[in-house]
Amino acid sequence: MSDQVAYFFQDLGQYLINGIAQGSIYALVALGYTMVYGIIRLINFAHGEFYMVGAFVGLFLIQAHLPFIIALPCAMLGSGLLAVTVERLVYRPIRKAGKIQALITALGVSLLLQYLGQNLLGADPRPFPDALENKTYMMGPLMISKIQLIIIVTTVILMGALRYLVMYTKIGKAMRATSYNLEAAELMGIDTNKIISFTFFVGAALAGAAGVLVGMYYNTVEPMMGMIPGLKAFVAAVLGGIGVIPGAVLGGLVLGVAENLVIGFWVSTYRDAIAFAILIIILLIRPAGLLGRNTREKV
């Protein structure tokens, strides 16, 4: 009997570790959704593709024998530049066109990037070369792999940097000002177009980092890889309260942990459905999301 209890807690601990690693990835991607939504009220469905592009940039650089520590910032830069380009060429011209139009455009951009990726890179999944030796560490009875550790540490560092940027720097304060009210920010002399570009850049860079980490974690990269994680990160952002930065982090972690608990203790078939089940339950209880404010949305 006591053996069973011990096993239960050992399993629980293991699923929590796996869940936190997985949730870190969701959180990194969810941040971009929430930041872009916060600033221009756009659900950028192409965000999953920024993540995919980051994974490919990371793949190519690591194939070229560059170390992870170089590949990661380059992938972030690649995703960020793509996002800035998409914003400038597509989203900016239609910014005043209406929400449905923007949503459909975002879906279009997402599909375009997926098929462009298939066309240029081929549809076949590519293995990620081992950038790191695959070590596993024991923490008492629990295992944590080196890549899980790297995922968690990288995420913590990036989130710390993001928090510093948003809370304490001049451009971060301008981002918050723009997100509260774009016209009021303009009246301060803030070039809100630049701030919006920058927000796209930062959000996509985080997604790009997540792409590299996922490529290493699951050892596979392909042009459609952004679709499901993109959707789940969107769910995580809504779960946490869309537009609220700490909400995206919390939403990602909740989702990652819940998924791993369900897979571990129950069945893995429901893995992808679980995200949406959690979303529905939480939104029934807290319509604005876990950390969302219960204010009505501005028109």
Binding site: K173, R176, A177, Y180, N181, E183, A184, L187, G189
Partner: peptide, 13 residues
């Protein structure tokens, strides 16, 4: 510069 109608101060700053 302008102090707009309804003030529009940044509440979270």
């Amino acid at each position: 510069s302008q102090a707009p109608e309804g003030r529009l101060i940044f509440p979270d700053l």
